[in-house]
């Protein structure tokens, strides 16, 4: 099981009932489930009707999800964006800055990283945003 973590802390999964489908099996209205090798450029059709995109990270320290999330947002995806996998509270700020709304954290990691740690993450303006007015 997983724990959903947003900027509000530990929250319930508002998309719990949604079916998760890979791009090749996708039907409108379902959540789009992507892996770390997804090519955002090839998903325009699915993205136009997916209320939720979940990106499962490739493992601890694999940083492809940051670029995939940023690319989805640049392409204009406005739905809910979620990263799923072994993520650290220390990566939360960067995930939010890349356009993610929340993460789905394995329960074991949620136990070791209690809610207070996530709520304490500062979200001040970063260098990149200041430089690029982004």
């Amino acid at each position: 099981m997983t724990q959903i973590v947003s900027k509000d802390g530990f929250v319930a999964d508002q998309f719990a009932d949604l079916e998760r489908l890979a791009p090749e099996d996708y039907r409108p209205g379902a959540a789009l489930a992507l892996g770390p090798t997804a090519d955002p450029g090839a998903l325009a059709e699915q993205l136009s009707s997916a209320p939720l995109v979940e990106i499962t990270v490739g493992g601890f320290g694999d940083g492809r999800e940051f670029s995939i999330g940023a690319l989805l947002r640049r392409q204009g995806y406005r739905g809910h964006l979620r990263a799923c996998g072994p993520l650290l509270v220390d990566q939360f700020r960067a995930l939010i800055r890349c356009g993610f709304d929340d993460i789905a954290l394995p329960d074991e990691m949620a136990e070791r990283q209690p809610e207070a740690q996530w709520r304490a993450v500062p979200f001040e303006t970063g260098y990149r945003a200041r430089l690029l007015n982004a």
Binding site: G61, G63, A70, A94, Y127, R128
Partner: peptide, 16 residues
């Protein structure tokens, strides 16, 4: 210096 500021804590490129 411009590259330093841009690359410092860049949200996308910390786990290359």
């Amino acid at each position: 210096e411009l590259v330093r500021q841009w690359s410092t804590d860049h949200p996308e490129f910390a786990y290359l």
